[in-house]
């Protein structure tokens, strides 16, 4: 699903023109982004919370060369899914076998 698909949903379900739907979807994500850029969290009930967290600086290593580097303090965005969303994804049993993702962190 891309932004264009969301626009299509608005167009079909709400009845705005494609142009208005696109404008609204754009404004919604812009408002979220601006708020997060100010360091504020965004809480969408039924979906989840987007939270900006500070990371302290620390020493790290370039995994390729082994060279020590200083990773500077930075701010990162985290997403905590709401219980409603987690339950929605789990209201059907997960079939055993077949292709599945192997735990977490193995993608991309």
């Amino acid at each position: 699903m891309t932004k264009a698909d969301i626009v299509e949903q608005i167009y079909e379900q709400v009845g705005f023109s494609k142009k208005e739907s696109a404008e609204l979807v754009e404004k919604v994500f812009d408002a979220i982004k601006t708020t997060l850029a100010e360091g504020e969290k965004v809480k969408i009930s039924g979906f989840g919370n987007f939270v900006v967290r500070g990371k302290n600086s620390r020493k790290g290593r370039n995994p390729q060369t082994g060279q020590e580097i200083l990773l500077e303090a930075r701010k990162v965005l985290t997403f905590k899914p709401s219980l409603v969303l987690k339950n929605l994804l789990n209201d059907e049993e997960i079939p055993t076998g077949g292709s599945r993702l192997d735990g977490i962190g193995r993608l991309e």
Binding site: M1, T2, K3, D5, I6, Q9, I10, Q13, V14, F16, S21, L24, V25, V28, F29, I32, K33, I44, G46, F47, L85, L88, L89
Partner: peptide
């Protein structure tokens, strides 16, 4: 509109679909 956006995203995730919002 706001409710429809998040509902359609939740439904996409329910079907296992990946969502990609450019710039977000």
């Amino acid at each position: 509109v706001v409710n429809t956006i998040f509902e359609s995203m939740a439904q996409a995730l329910k079907t296992g679909e990946r969502i990609e919002i450019r710039g977000f």
